[in-house]
Design a protein around this nucleic acid. Structure first.
Lengths: 120, 120
DNA sequence: GCAACATGTCACTATCTGGTGACATGTTGA
DNA sequence: TCAACATGTCACCAGATAGTGACATGTTGC
């Protein structure tokens, strides 16, 4: 992927379940790399670091070095961005499609005992 | 990825910009495969079909065959699902005020230096 | 029937991805 | 000082991914 846009890097970063898991952990509080490695026993340290690199490239992770430790902190802004720019319109679209469908069903069914209004 | 969960298939399907683009087109109305191929001149037909396969596997695409044509219709439900199950919690509790303020400023400001390309 | 058409499927390729181990470097504290 | 520690970096590997062209199959309309 030679020409990845910032948005694209976010989507790709989120595509991996391990990375989403890492973000779940980091959402609670910042962790050092060693702490994260300890929390993901299925991966070797190098593997964890690679995931962290991807997250950092996507802007989802902020790194601060402090002596010999490295603090990894989550940044949720890019998630907000993909929501605002893409997810939201398809979620809203669905809501309206669903309500159209509901209306369609209700109007074609013509329940005799029930008025068309929202009586629920 | 031998053990991909349904949710994971959705994330992976959305990771590719071409597929998100396909969904944008399909969100307006269903298209036949030939129509889609025509709309994506950079890809050969086989390439388009592969993307459609991935989308279908993820449940984002519903296919109906009608004679010799195949109608591809979008299903946004899986997007709603990943929003409900993951995106929402990371978007909520983010400085929503801050990002909305930023958006507000940007949209009312009309930046003089045009941003590089709409990056979907 | 049959030609044009839309789709399905297969084999193949280059590159990306997620993972590993080995080794190097900088930091801490006794 | 120096050993333990946390991180950085490199080379390497297997499998997934995104793309292609060639060919097969089913449909349509004249």
């Amino acid at each position: 992927m030679l020409t990845a846009t910032p948005t694209d890097r976010v989507w790709r970063a989120l595509a991996d379940p391990t990375r989403r898991s890492l973000l779940d952990v980091l959402a609670r509080r910042p962790h050092t790399t060693a702490e994260l490695v300890e929390r993901f026993p299925d991966l070797c340290r190098t593997g964890v670091m690679k995931h962290l690199d991807v997250l950092e490239e996507a802007g989802l992770l902020m790194v601060r070095r402090e002596g010999r430790v490295r603090w990894n902190r989550m940044n949720a802004m890019p998630i907000q961005r993909i929501y605002d720019r893409w997810v939201s319109k398809h979620v809203r679209g669905m809501a309206s499609a669903a309500s159209r469908f509901k209306e369609h069903v209700e109007s074609s069914h013509k329940p005799k005992t029930r008025r068309k209004g929202r009586d629920r």
